[in-house]
Design a protein around this nucleic acid. Sequence first.
DNA 1: CGATACATTGAGGAGGGTCAATCCGGGTGG
DNA 2: CCACCCGGATTGACCCTCCTCAATGTATCG
Lengths: 218, 218
Amino acid sequence: MLALSDTCRAAIMGHGGLCACLSPSALGHLRAIAGDVRIEAGQTLFQTGHAADALFGVRHGAVMLSRSLDGHRRQILSFHFSGDMLGFAAEGRHHCTATALGRASLCRIPLAELDQDLALQRHVHGILARNVGQALDMQVRLGRMNAAERVRSLLNELCSRLGGGRELHLPMRIAEMADYLGLRPETVSREMSALRQAGLVGSFSPDGVLAITDPTGL
Amino acid sequence: MLALSDTCRAAIMGHGGLCACLSPSALGHLRAIAGDVRIEAGQTLFQTGHAADALFGVRHGAVMLSRSLDGHRRQILSFHFSGDMLGFAAEGRHHCTATALGRASLCRIPLAELDQDLALQRHVHGILARNVGQALDMQVRLGRMNAAERVRSLLNELCSRLGGGRELHLPMRIAEMADYLGLRPETVSREMSALRQAGLVGSFSPDGVLAITDPTGL
DNA sequence: CGATACATTGAGGAGGGTCAATCCGGGTGG
DNA sequence: CCACCCGGATTGACCCTCCTCAATGTATCG
């Protein structure tokens, strides 16, 4: 098992990552206080309304945050990959549910520990501010983009966040993309087919690998 | 002119307000560092991309945050009323534009001052976390609600935030509601008419006053 | 009193939802 | 090794919600 600092450094994210831009001494402290969590695909890390007593950093795998409306309408709020943080809550209660998209491992930083560390606290504040910015991006997507634009912008986002050049490894299924974009799975599939016919992407293999034929064209 | 503490105390908001839950001594300090800003209807407080060097608290009036897509598609991200804070930015740049809905007065807290005050900083962190929660509410609205549900939830939100019992004073026009809800003005108007015919709301006078006939029915 | 700005209402059309059939790859069991 | 099954992606046909465009109503202001 890799040490916390190693796994977090391994994350490419220049921004948004927790450990990426911490000093060695701060990293040492963080390693001392951070716990370890592993969850299987589909399991939840926390649920809406649960008490929030820790922040989490994704080491490996992918986690999604979601909320459901009257039980059968689901809105996926965000995807979190290696190096990303999640678990921010207001008034001590989680306002969404965190579910693993595949097997995932995370580090766990108790809020009590966070209160002790001023530098870490400021760092987390910056991450939180960026989270707000991403939430606003989503509002524009959901409020003012049509289906084709939504799918393209999602692929763009995933390309830049997951890297991987011409092979985009999607950790989620069409159904999750749809619930993230405010669309139906059929609509997402149709738009993907349109992109394929336009020569921008290749085939979408069932193990989640999508070939990006024309990265700039997206 | 009212003193800062007075005007902020006047704000009813139990949560989300800046001054509401500060101790008298903290309030004194805040009054010492906070500046004063007044803007006319339609004027902007800051714009996307501008350097962010201060937070703002609404004293009187209403302010909206918005972002525009290719110039002619606008998404309104949030409305801010008396007692609300705005101006949170990531990496020192504003990621949206703040526009006054009517004549508005605000207090201005330089970020440099904020760095000095630990208690205030923690307080602001809490407000920021709540802002994230509201942004997630919007994602559910925009992604998974139909037109009727969006309009009703907006009216509900405004009722609870603006108070005023059976007379809801709307500081924005139909066009702004539409750009907030991801709809067209005509659609919002139609849904309002439907609520009127259902007996839930009364007439919508051109000065922005909407009679709430059945507050619980919403 | 006309002019302007905005809300309202109507008619028609398009985008995306809904439902159902089909396809496709992988796993299972004979 | 092959038939079968199963979950999910794909595709098609149809329909409904919301958008679009245009006309009308209405209050405010010069």
